[in-house]
Structures are given as structure tokens and as C-alpha cells.
Amino acid sequence: MSEYKKVIEFLKENKVDPEKALVTLKKEYGTKPGNKTNLKYHWKMMRFTLYIWERLNEHDKNIVGKRIDTVRKVVWAHKFKRLYDTFPLPTFNPENEVKKLAQLIAEPRQDKEFKSRNFVYPKSHQKADNPIPQSVIDKIR
């Protein structure tokens, strides 16, 4: 039996509504990082990456503080401003961006984005380009 048939059998046995299953699957697997038209998704993931890298840096130095302090550090960094300018966004307002990013990170719906498959160590780290383990992401988030 093919793997797809097993999925269909599971859905039938458990009386899962096909529409609901499709919506759930699209929500979980529908975002394709290679899709260059999804600028909103890319902008979100780039901000998350900058945040995770800063938290990782703080973790390595044993100075992990409050989340909001890290978010401020990330938003006020020159790298963030340069990145902001590459997207079609309104005029840069750092305090507004701090608020948006802090809320986005804390939002439970974003848990699915904070997965090991989405983040690698920065070039400056000794483990550069390797995926950041999920346990580390959970600890520093």
C-alpha cells in the first residue's frame, strides 16, 4: 500500500472531513520558502532569524536577559535597518518595529515557525551553517 493510500485510509477511518484535512495540510505544509512572491513570510522569517541569532549570541555569553531587550537590540541594529530597506515597507519606525516583533515572537501561532529546520547557526559561530537544535531554540526563544 502506498503512503498516500495509508493517509487516505486514516482519514476515512477517523471520519476526518476532507476539506478540514486539506486546510490543515495547506496551513502546515503550504508555505514554500522558495516562493519568492511571499514577501511577508520572508520578512517574518528574516526577523525571526536575526532574533534567534542574537539570543544565541547572548546564550553563548551567558547573558540572556528579557526578550524585549533582545528585540530592541535586534531592531536598532544596522543589519535590521538594511534588511528593512530591501522590502516594500512603510517608513522605518524602530519603536513600532520593536512592538511588532515582540508580539509576533510571543504569539502562540508562530510556534510552528520556531523549528530547527528553519534556522542555522550564523557564519560567525563555530557551528556555522549547521541547523540549530530544537532544544536550543526552545531554550532561547
Results as ranks from 00 to 15, higher is better:
residue 1 M to V: 11
residue 1 M to R: 09
residue 2 S to A: 14
residue 3 E to W: 09
residue 3 E to C: 11
residue 5 K to A: 13
residue 6 K to S: 14
residue 7 V to W: 01
residue 8 I to Y: 13
residue 10 F to C: 10
residue 10 F to D: 08
residue 10 F to T: 09
residue 11 L to V: 00
residue 12 K to A: 09
residue 12 K to D: 11
residue 12 K to N: 10
residue 13 E to A: 10
residue 17 D to W: 07
residue 17 D to E: 15
residue 17 D to N: 15
residue 17 D to K: 10
residue 19 E to D: 15
residue 21 A to Y: 05
residue 22 L to G: 03
residue 23 V to N: 14
residue 24 T to V: 07
residue 26 K to M: 14
residue 28 E to M: 12
residue 32 K to M: 10
residue 32 K to P: 04
residue 33 P to W: 03
residue 33 P to M: 04
residue 33 P to V: 02
residue 34 G to N: 03
residue 37 T to M: 08
residue 37 T to K: 10
residue 39 L to V: 01
residue 42 H to I: 03
residue 43 W to C: 15
residue 44 K to C: 00
residue 44 K to T: 01
residue 45 M to Q: 02
residue 45 M to I: 03
residue 46 M to R: 02
residue 49 T to R: 02
residue 52 I to E: 00
residue 52 I to Q: 02
residue 53 W to V: 03
residue 54 E to H: 00
residue 56 L to V: 00
residue 57 N to A: 08
residue 60 D to M: 09
residue 61 K to G: 14
residue 66 K to I: 09
residue 67 R to Y: 00
residue 68 I to Y: 02
residue 68 I to F: 01
residue 69 D to I: 04
residue 69 D to T: 05
residue 70 T to C: 04
residue 72 R to A: 00
residue 73 K to M: 03
residue 78 H to D: 15
residue 79 K to E: 13
residue 80 F to V: 04
residue 81 K to M: 15
residue 84 Y to W: 08
residue 85 D to Q: 04
residue 86 T to V: 12
residue 87 F to P: 08
residue 87 F to L: 15
residue 88 P to F: 14
residue 88 P to I: 13
residue 89 L to K: 14
residue 89 L to R: 14
residue 90 P to Y: 04
residue 90 P to V: 02
residue 91 T to H: 12
residue 92 F to R: 08
residue 93 N to F: 05
residue 95 E to I: 00
residue 96 N to F: 07
residue 98 V to R: 00
residue 102 A to F: 05
residue 103 Q to C: 07
residue 107 E to W: 08
residue 108 P to T: 09
residue 109 R to N: 15
residue 111 D to K: 08
residue 111 D to F: 06
residue 112 K to A: 07
residue 112 K to V: 11
residue 114 F to M: 09
residue 115 K to N: 10
residue 117 R to T: 12
residue 118 N to W: 10
residue 118 N to C: 06
residue 119 F to T: 08
residue 120 V to C: 12
residue 120 V to M: 12
residue 121 Y to E: 13
residue 122 P to M: 07
residue 122 P to S: 07
residue 123 K to C: 13
residue 123 K to F: 13
residue 123 K to E: 15
residue 124 S to W: 04
residue 125 H to I: 02
residue 126 Q to R: 10
residue 127 K to D: 11
residue 127 K to N: 13
residue 129 D to E: 10
residue 129 D to R: 09
residue 131 P to H: 12
residue 132 I to L: 11
residue 132 I to Y: 12
residue 133 P to Q: 05
residue 133 P to Y: 04
residue 134 Q to E: 15
residue 134 Q to R: 07
residue 136 V to W: 00
residue 136 V to N: 02
residue 139 K to N: 14
residue 140 I to C: 05
residue 141 R to E: 08
residue 141 R to M: 08
